[in-house]
């Protein structure tokens, strides 16, 4: 199967001799929901910039749905929709005009451009605001406007660089639903984000980039399987004894009604409930102390540093 995106030995050295990418390889299958994670300055935005022609590569090869960007970049660009990190539209233009103009740059006839603009502005809940200058829109609306703009030529590969930055929780959830929907309809999505919860909730595959190198590239399930320990916080109905202890588990009494339990890979959480049940303590709720992926991310990035 032709990959949606294939990157081979991609390098980038900026004019100031900073080596942003050190020969990375990446393959994203069609229909995938792919997360590209990494700390600030790791090389995520440089990679995306090269894919969509805003940054010139120093070496390497990129193909988008089998089209080599060195051989036919315009054809490759037709497959790509990009939602950048920064707002990059004319703030004085109306939302509808911004989306219609973008369609024009891809050669869509004015009639089709308007039809598509209406479709995506409606789907992203911006149709009522179509005649408002972009500068008057809220941060979340501006973000959704960029998504509508990126989809107007109906690309097969959508790349979102930090789409949730500055977006409130409710808006973020509705954006996730939208992205899941278009992914289910066949659009391949590559996402960079600092919200690891977002990557875990949406993506099936993940690559972690650090210091210009890919330090992990696997499925989300496989990555989470590699976690060797997790810390759970248990909220207890009854007051915990001062010397609360569960055999074979590391525990920490946080306060009278809260207990932290570290569960190693292979240990069974049922044993914790059984021990607490025997002690006459009922559990009202339970949660992870930290996002599981976050712990993995920190381990990988720190390990590579």
């Amino acid at each position: 199967m032709i990959p949606a995106l294939e990157i081979e030995n991609l390098s980038k050295v900026y004019d100031n001799n900073f080596e942003a990418l050190k020969g990375i390889r990446l393959r994203v299958e069609p229909g995938d929901f792919f997360a590209l994670l990494g700390p600030n300055g790791a090389g995520k935005s440089t990679t995306i910039g090269i894919i969509c022609s805003l940054v010139a590569k120093s070496a390497g090869k990129i193909s988008v749905f089998g089209v080599d960007i060195d051989k036919d970049f315009p054809a490759a660009k037709r497959h790509i929709g990009i939602v950048p990190q920064e707002f990059n539209f004319n703030q004085f233009e109306k939302g509808l005009d911004i989306v219609i103009n973008q369609a024009g740059y891809y050669g869509l006839s004015p009639g089709l451009a308007r039809e598509r603009a209406e479709k995506y502005l409606r789907e992203l809940g911006l149709w009522e605001q179509r005649d408002i200058p972009a500068r008057m829109l809220s941060g979340g609306m501006k973000r959704r406007l960029m998504i509508a703009r990126s989809l107007v030529h109906e690309p097969q590969l959508l790349i979102l660089d930090e789409p949730s930055a500055g977006v409130d929780i409710e808006m973020r959830r509705s954006m996730w639903d939208f992205l899941r929907r278009i992914n289910a309809q066949g659009t391949t999505i590559i996402l960079t984000t600092h919200y690891l919860e977002e990557a875990e909730a949406l993506c099936r595959h993940i690559a972690i980039i650090n210091h210009g190198k890919i330090v992990e590239n696997t499925s989300m399930k496989e990555l989470l399987r590699q976690l060797d320990r997790e810390v759970f916080i248990l909220d207890c109905v009854e007051k915990l004894p001062d010397n609360t202890h569960i055999d074979e588990f590391v525990t920490r009494r946080v306060d009278d009604h809260t207990l932290e339990v570290e569960v190693q890979k292979g240990q069974n959480l049922n044993a914790v409930f059984a021990a607490l049940g025997l002690a006459g303590i009922n559990i009202s709720s339970m949660r992870n102390r930290a996002n599981r992926l976050e712990e993995m991310f920190v381990n990988l990035v720190e390990g590579a540093a």
Binding site: S53, L54, F73, R78, F87, F89, N90, I98, Y106
Partner: peptide, 18 residues
């Protein structure tokens, strides 16, 4: 220059227009 300053020139640069 305005489109460079606002970043909206990227709308053109990422598109296939020559």
């Amino acid at each position: 220059f305005g489109s460079k300053f606002s970043g909206s020139v990227e709308e053109l640069l990422v598109s296939p227009v020559s």
